[in-house]
Structures are given as C-alpha cells and as structure tokens.
Simulated scan of single mutants.
Amino acid sequence: MKGRALLRHLADISGPVAPGMVDELAERLGLDLTRPVGTLSKGNKQKVGLVQAFMHRPDLLVLDEPTSGLDPLVQREFLAMLTEARNDGQTVMLSSHVLSEVQQAADDVAVLAHGHVVAEGSVAALRIASVRRIRATVTATPPDALRASLLAVTDVDEVDVTQAPGSELIRVAATALGAIDPLIRALTAGTIRDLTVEEPDLEESVLSLYEQKGKAS
C-alpha cells in the first residue's frame, strides 16, 4: 500500500482530516506519498507516523521518540510543527532520549530513572537545580587556604586552584552540585576579581539526577 492510500485509510477510520493537510505535512517532512510503505526506510516510515499523528489536529498528541531516524533538517521541521501545535492549544506528551529536543520543545519535564520519577518541573527549574560550573579569579589569599576552604563546602566537586609563578592571580574552577551560595562565600576568603557561572544544559542536569538516584538506591 502506498503512503497516500495508507493515510487515507487511517483518516477514514479515525475521523475527518482538513483538505490538503496530508500533502502539507508530507511536504514539510519531505515524505514521498507515492512510494509503497513497505519499501520506505526507517526514517520515512517515521515520517508516515508523524503525518498520521498530526493530520487530525488532535487535542492530545502522544509522541514516543518521534525523531528517531530523522535527519537534522527534518528534526528541525518537526520541532516547528510541535511549537505550532502547542501554540494552537494542543497538548503534547513527548517521550524522548534526545535531551536537546526536550529542552527546545517542553514546558514541563518528568525525569524517569529505573521506573521512578526522580525529578519533575519546568526545564528552567531542572537546569537551575543541578550542576553549575564556577570559574573565578581571586587575589589576596594563599592558594592552599583557598583550596581548603572550597573543599570544605558540601556539594562542591572538581575543585582546581592554580597560581602561575610570580602572579598574584589565583585561577579557580569548581562544580557546584547544590546551592551555589556556600561556594561563593568560600571564594570571598580572598578578593574576587572575576567570576563566571556556567549554567548546564538539560543533558547535564538529567545525567546528574540519574547519578544521584543511583547513589541513593
């Protein structure tokens, strides 16, 4: 059965589809509707499934790994379609291991590890609640004392304190696994000349949550 015939059959079963909707979606995704479905690659079969999901403009879209097998340009078009659906008032439930995709598409996220929800909330909240990398330049304190002060802080990892011979500048790098205030306070043992806080992306946050769940279980 060719792609167009299959989608027409599915439309007959599931309900009416707006005229031209199937062709519009197929064009956006680069899907050839004249080819038999059985001859399609995995990526093109995935496109058929996406056309089927979007063509009725349902109130609820449930998508499981929707971009599997799609090339980057088609993935970008899919994300545009997802944004349009959300802006039109449709609710989208998306399951994905592609964290950059979740970060771009989701408002609220639930993170599952070993069958349990280990964290949930907005994308921004999950990013803020997790690791942040700190880089600072400090003066007016001995490097060893500064290092000891940083290592005494709970939930601080990857502490690196260096000072070039003959320089008054102390370079500090560290990772905050929890609240950031204790780490900043430790840096004020000297005079902070420069400070950078690098916010993690969602992938780093999720991996950190998985690791924390593994240690707790």
Rank of each mutant, 00 (worst) to 15 (best):
D32N: 14
M1V: 15
G15D: 02
P66D: 07
R76Q: 13
A26D: 02
S208W: 13
K42Y: 08
R171I: 11
G214A: 14
G30I: 03
V62G: 04
P72K: 04
Y210F: 14
G190D: 09
S95K: 07
G121Q: 07
L50G: 03
Q46I: 07
R76M: 10
A85W: 09
D194E: 15
F54S: 03
G89Q: 02
D59V: 11
A110V: 13
A145C: 03
Q90V: 00
A110I: 05
A18S: 12
L209Q: 08
H97N: 15
I134N: 12
F54I: 08
F78I: 07
V17T: 09
Q103V: 10
A129P: 05
L61N: 02
E199W: 04
V74Y: 00
P16D: 13
H56C: 04
I184S: 04
R8L: 12
P72E: 08
Q46T: 11
L29C: 01
L146A: 08
K47D: 07
A18M: 03
G30Y: 01
V92L: 08
V74G: 00
F78Q: 00
V197L: 12
D23I: 03
R35E: 05
M21W: 08
G121V: 13
G20K: 07
M55W: 01
T91Q: 06
E203F: 01
Q90Y: 01
V161G: 03
L50Q: 00
E27I: 00
E84A: 13
L63E: 07
E204W: 00
A189Y: 00
V102C: 11
G49V: 04
L70R: 08
L82W: 00
L33T: 01
P36T: 03
T39L: 06
E65G: 06
Q46Y: 04
I184H: 04
G115H: 11
I170R: 05
A152D: 09
R28C: 00
T154L: 08
A152Y: 06
L169T: 14
L73A: 14
V51Y: 02
R35D: 02
T141N: 10
G69S: 04
E168H: 13
G190C: 08
T39V: 12
H114D: 15
T191V: 15
A186K: 06
T139G: 08
S95W: 00
A11R: 09
G49E: 05
Q90C: 10
Q52S: 04
I128F: 11
A136V: 10
T154M: 03
A189L: 12
V156Y: 02
T34C: 01
P143N: 09
L7W: 00
K2V: 15
Q212C: 07
D157I: 04
A85D: 06
V102D: 04
E24D: 15
A113S: 15
I134R: 10
V153S: 05
A140I: 11
L79V: 13
S149F: 01
G190Q: 12
A145H: 02
G166D: 03
E211G: 11
V172K: 00
S14I: 02
L25Q: 08
T188W: 06
V51E: 10
L183Q: 09
L70D: 08
